[in-house]
Design a protein around this nucleic acid. Sequence first.
DNA 1: CTGAAAGCGCTAACAT
DNA 2: ATGTTAGCGCTTTCAG
Lengths: 326, 326
Amino acid sequence: MRPTMKDVASAAGVALKTVSRVVNGEPGVHPGTAERVREAIERLGYSRNESARVLRRGRTSTVGLVIEDLADPFYSVLGRAVEDVTTAHGCLLLSGSSNEDPVRERELIRTFCARRVDGLIVVPAGEDHSFLRPELDAGTPAVFVDRPPGPGVDVDTVLCDNAGGARLATRHLLSHGHRRIAFLGDRPSIHTAARRLHGYRAALGRLFDERLVSMRAPVPRDVRADLDRMLALDSPPTALFTGNGRITMTALRALEGRRMALVGFDDFELADLLRPGVTVVAQDPTSMGGLAAELLFRRLSGDTGPAEHLRLPVRVIPRGSGELPP
Amino acid sequence: MRPTMKDVASAAGVALKTVSRVVNGEPGVHPGTAERVREAIERLGYSRNESARVLRRGRTSTVGLVIEDLADPFYSVLGRAVEDVTTAHGCLLLSGSSNEDPVRERELIRTFCARRVDGLIVVPAGEDHSFLRPELDAGTPAVFVDRPPGPGVDVDTVLCDNAGGARLATRHLLSHGHRRIAFLGDRPSIHTAARRLHGYRAALGRLFDERLVSMRAPVPRDVRADLDRMLALDSPPTALFTGNGRITMTALRALEGRRMALVGFDDFELADLLRPGVTVVAQDPTSMGGLAAELLFRRLSGDTGPAEHLRLPVRVIPRGSGELPP
DNA sequence: CTGAAAGCGCTAACAT
DNA sequence: ATGTTAGCGCTTTCAG
C-alpha cells in the first residue's frame, strides 16, 4: 500500500541504499542523484517507516511518561515540561494517565517498554516497582518524579520538599495566631500526603490533635463532610491547611462565605484573584518535569553514576487567606 | 541484550513459533508446553518487541493527537477524553503540542505518520493541510477538532457552535442593558476567534464599533494595553466579551477592582468562586475529545461514508459578572 | 499440536 | 559515489 524505499529506488532508478542515504542526509551522494531521489519521494508521497528503522537500529527515540492524570493542572504542566525537553532532544513523548491505579500504572509501563521507549519518567501510583527490574537491567533508565519508587528500586528521583513545605505552611498559620489548625490531605498511602502530614505534625508539636486531620481521596462530598465534622467540634479549627490543589478547591467551595484562614499546598491559576487571595505553598511543576527529563537524558547519554535524588524547594506565597486572624 | 522469542524458545526447548503462540494467546498449544514457555518468559524477563510486531503486521495500535498545548486547561481535558477512548479501544495515544505553530504542527504530524499511527486527531494550527493528502490516501484517517482543516481536505470534524455561542454571549449582555460591548479575541487567523467575532458582530448589528474590538495573541501585556485604550475612549465599553479562557484570565486581572460586566467564552475552574462569579459560554471539551476519538475509531473499523461534521452546542452559565448593569 | 522458512522495511557492514 | 548482502524480531504461511 504505502511506498517503501524499494519503490522510491526503482522510481528514481537507483539502489535502495542510495535512497536510504538521501532520506537520512548521509554524505556521499551526488547532488543530481539526490535530487532525483527527492523528486521520487515527493511524487510517491513516501515517508520512512519508523518501525523498520527502530527494529534495525535498536533505539526508538521515544520517552514514556506516566502521570496520574493528563488533565490535572499540576501534572499537565509537569508533562508539558517533559515534552519540551524531550522534543529538544529529538525524541517523541509517549504519555499516559494512571488514574492513581497501580494496575493501570504497571500496564502503561509494560506498554511503553514493549514499544521500547529509551527511558521512562514516572509519577508512581503503586508502592511496588520491582516489576521494573528487567527493564532497568536491560538498560532502560527510569526517573521518578513527585513521589519515590517502592523499596529496592534505586533510580533517579525528583521530589519537592513536602515535609518542609508543610512545616512552612503550618508555621505560617501559627505565626498568625492560630492554634487549632486542621489538615485536609489525600490518602496516607500517597507519599506526598504522608510527608505533608509529617511536616504539619512536626510544626504543631503538642498542638497536634488527630480530630483535626482528614486524609482521603479528594472527593468533594467526603472532604466536605470531614470539614463539617471538624467545624462542629467543641474547639473547632480556626485555620485550614489543605494538602493539594484539588483538596484546596474543594475546601474553598465548602467554606464558601465563611471567613477562615487557609493555606494550600500547590499554587493554582486565579489563586490571586479570589477574595481573600489564597495563600499557598508553591511547587514548580515545570522545573520538576524539566529536571526529571534532563536527568533521564543524562543517563541516556551514558552517565552511569549513582542514582541522583533531587529535592526541590517550595515557597510560601502569601495572598491574604493565610494571614487572616483566628 | 534483551531476550527475544528465539531466546525464550531455546530456554523452553520449543520452536520460536510456539512461543509466539503463547505470547499472543493463540489456541492450539498444549497446556504443559504453554506453562514451560511462560516460565521461561518470566525467568528471562522477556517482553515482546512491538516494533518487530508492527513491522510484520502493519498496524501499530496507536493514535496521534496534535493539540496546541498539552498544559492548557481546555486542551488537556480534551486530550484526556481522547486518551480514555483510545485506551478503551486497546490503543496507545501519542500526543504533542503544536504551540499554535504550523511548522511544528506539520512536523508532529510527520513524526506520527512515520511511526504509522493508525489515525490522527488534530486541533490544527495551520491553514493548509494539503500535506495530509498522502497519509489520507494511504488509509490513515484523520479527525479535526475545535477547528476545521484548510481547504481541500475533507475529513470528519468536531467543532462547537462558535458563532452561536458568541451571539448568545453578546445578546446576554445586550439584554442586561449594555450597548457598548467590547470583544477581546485571539488572532483573526484562528478559526474559532473569527467565528466568535462573527457571532458577536451579528448580535450587535449597528451597535458594532470596531474600536471596541481587539484581536491578538493572548499576551497579558498586549491585551491589557488594548483594554486600557478602549476604556479611555469618549464612550468606553460597559461590558466585555472575552474570546477564550486565556483572554478571560488576562481581562479579569486587568479589570482588577473595576466593576465591569464580563462574559467569557470557555468555562474554567473557580469561575464560580470569584466575586462576582464569571458568566461564561461553556463548551464541553470532554465531549469534543471523546466524540472525535469515537469518529476516528468508527473509520478505523471500516466506515467509509462521507465525512461527518459535528457541531456541538454551547450554553451560557450565568454567575453574576454577565448580569451586572452598565 | 508443533515447527521451518520467508519476509515486513529498514540500516550496518562491506563491496565495487 | 553507488550497490549488495545480511539480519533486526516478529508474524504469516505452509508442512509435518
